[in-house]
Amino acid sequence: MPSQNASGASVGVRTDAKPPQRERGRARVAALLDAAGMEFAEKGYEAATMTAIAARAGAAIGSLYQFFPTKDALAQALLETYVAALIADFERLREAAPSLDTAALAHRLARALLAFRSAHPAFAPLIETHGGSLPSATAVRERLRDELAAVLRAKAPWMKAAQAHVRAAVIQQLMKAAVAMQADASLPHRTAIIDELERVMRLYLDDTLGGAEAGSGASAIAKTRNRS
């Protein structure tokens, strides 16, 4: 199912892909999508070809075109599955959030995109592709902010929607920073750097969630400011 942005509109567009009707067809489509993911991850969207994807899947090119008449349609279907999986990850985090302390929540948030991109290496080259029928990176970022805001409000039900979205944007940037740091081969001690970023995330959550665990209403960041 196509994911949706903040306004409720579909993040993607109609792909014209033929939906499989039987289990065998669904298995074939899954194999084709897996092959496409590997091809896009290795070569990027522009350089990948339908012929190479079919060969990687061990399928006839006609079989690929039967389900996905264009490369755009194939990439769109693959990206839709990625976005759905990413949203599902954050929905599970939203359900768990009330029982997590800020340290555990910070740990999961700081590493969420790192883990997802590692598990789905074609996600980045597809999300950065412009033109065609692919969802824009902007639309996906908006949906992710919605999900982050929902996580915050699950943890702190008193938080107003506007506040949650502002704070979700800050958290999103910290998550993106973790991705950028991990990808920067020039940085020594990247693991330690990401650990430090997680600490920043925890301090921010302590502040933005009102120090709920301490029960005092004062956050670690606020105390640091007062001492200075």
Rank of each mutant, 00 (worst) to 15 (best):
T81G: 15
L148D: 01
K18L: 13
M38I: 06
L33C: 10
V29D: 05
R22H: 11
P19C: 03
R94D: 01
A17W: 01
D72K: 11
V170R: 13
A218F: 10
L33R: 04
E91T: 13
M201H: 01
G37M: 04
A169M: 10
A139W: 04
L93R: 10
K71F: 13
L100F: 04
A154V: 06
D184V: 07
A137P: 01
H189A: 15
L144F: 14
A124T: 12
V179Q: 08
A57V: 01
A59L: 07
L33G: 05
A222T: 06
L78G: 05
R24W: 08
E42V: 07
F68K: 02
R145S: 12
D89V: 07
Q66C: 12
A103E: 11
A220M: 05
E198Y: 06
A124C: 08
A73E: 14
A154I: 10
L105A: 00
T129I: 01
A9C: 05
R22I: 08
E128D: 12
F67V: 07
R141I: 08
R22Y: 06
S219K: 01
A169E: 14
E95N: 10
K155V: 07
A164W: 06
D206G: 02
L113N: 11
A169H: 14
S216H: 11
R190D: 06
S133H: 13
E95G: 13
A41G: 08
A85E: 15
A112D: 03
A97H: 03
G8I: 02
Y82W: 15
A30L: 12
V151Y: 05
A139I: 01
A149V: 08
R202V: 00
P121A: 03
P2I: 10
R202G: 01
A122Y: 00
R227E: 04
F67H: 14
L203I: 06
G62S: 12
L144D: 00
T15Y: 08
G8S: 02
A156K: 09
L144T: 05
